[in-house]
Simulated scan of single mutants.
Amino acid sequence: MDAQLPDVEAGKRFYGELFGWTFGVAEAYGDSVPARLGGEPVAALTPKTDGRMPTVWTVYFSTPDAGALGERIRAAGGQVVGGPWRVGPAGTTALAADPEGAVFGLWQPGRRPGFGRRHQPGTFDWVQLYTRDTEAADTFYGGLFHEALFGADVRPDFGRVAVGEVFPAEMPPHFLVHFRVADLEAALGAAARLGGRTQVSPFETSYGTVAVVVDNQGASFAVLER
């Protein structure tokens, strides 16, 4: 996953203090700055090159063939909104949208396989799709990713819920990435001190206690205490 930010240096200060991340140097291909925890990759911060584009976190689904998956997305009623693009030796990426317009990424790994850590404090723990038509979402994503989403030996990382259950019903369908934290209230206090704000106060879910935060540049994400 990565955050597209107007000011990557400000993002490094915010997320570095909030989650204890350190950062590598911007890579020559795409200017993406890798974020690490304990030396392992956990995310990336990417400079937003077009001010008309949203400031967002994007989740990427791994695939052995981004082009072929893009064709399946189109056939299922979604669309490929950008790419596939080769990102140097790291891999190949594309941006797609489901039939309701929720945007997600595709990642065909090269040298960069994906997360080095997850399901630990300061790392990815869950992504939730907020959608208006949960049955249509089940059909679309189940058809694309059935083994990854529903395989018996795979720990679930992905859920979906009707958008009106947490956000106003008029909010567009979207993905929300969740970061694990050891202490939810402490994380919310730290985010506020760093210039962020709580968008949705803590609430209980089947997978833990969640709050939604907006960072100091407007990108939304969730913090999750299990």
Rank of each mutant, 00 (worst) to 15 (best):
A152Q: 12
A96S: 13
G159E: 04
W57Q: 03
H119D: 15
E9Y: 00
A222R: 03
A10R: 09
A137V: 10
R13F: 04
T92E: 10
G114R: 02
G38C: 13
V163S: 10
P99D: 08
A191T: 05
I73Y: 05
F124M: 11
A68Y: 02
F179H: 09
P172Q: 00
F61R: 00
G151I: 08
F167A: 10
E27L: 15
A102K: 05
V212G: 09
Y141C: 13
R197T: 09
P168E: 06
R74Q: 07
V223A: 11
G110A: 12
I73R: 01
G38N: 14
F158R: 05
L69V: 14
Q120A: 15
R160K: 14
H174Y: 01
A76N: 10
R155D: 14
G24N: 07
G11Y: 01
R155V: 15
A222E: 05
P109D: 08
Q108I: 04
V81L: 09
V213K: 02
L95D: 10
G20H: 02
A43V: 01
Y60S: 12
E147H: 13
L176N: 06
L149Q: 06
D98P: 12
T63L: 10
D50K: 07
L69G: 09
F140N: 09
P173K: 00
A66G: 09
G20K: 01
T93N: 12
V161T: 13
V33E: 13
A94F: 07
A35F: 01
A152H: 08
L188D: 02
S62V: 12
G164K: 08
G16V: 02
E204H: 06
Q79V: 14
T22W: 02
P172W: 00
E185V: 09
R13K: 12
A162K: 02
V103P: 14
R86Q: 15
R112Y: 15
A211R: 01
A137T: 12
F221G: 07
L224G: 08
L194G: 10
L18I: 06
D153W: 04
R52K: 11
G101P: 15
F19H: 03
T209I: 06
V177W: 00
A10W: 00
A26I: 06
L176A: 06
A162C: 07
T131Y: 00
D31G: 13
Q4F: 10
G164R: 11
V223W: 02
V8S: 07
V163H: 06
E225M: 09
L144T: 12
V214G: 13
S206Q: 12
A94E: 05
R155P: 10
T131N: 11
A97E: 13
R111I: 05
G39P: 14
R132D: 15
V166Y: 01
G159P: 07
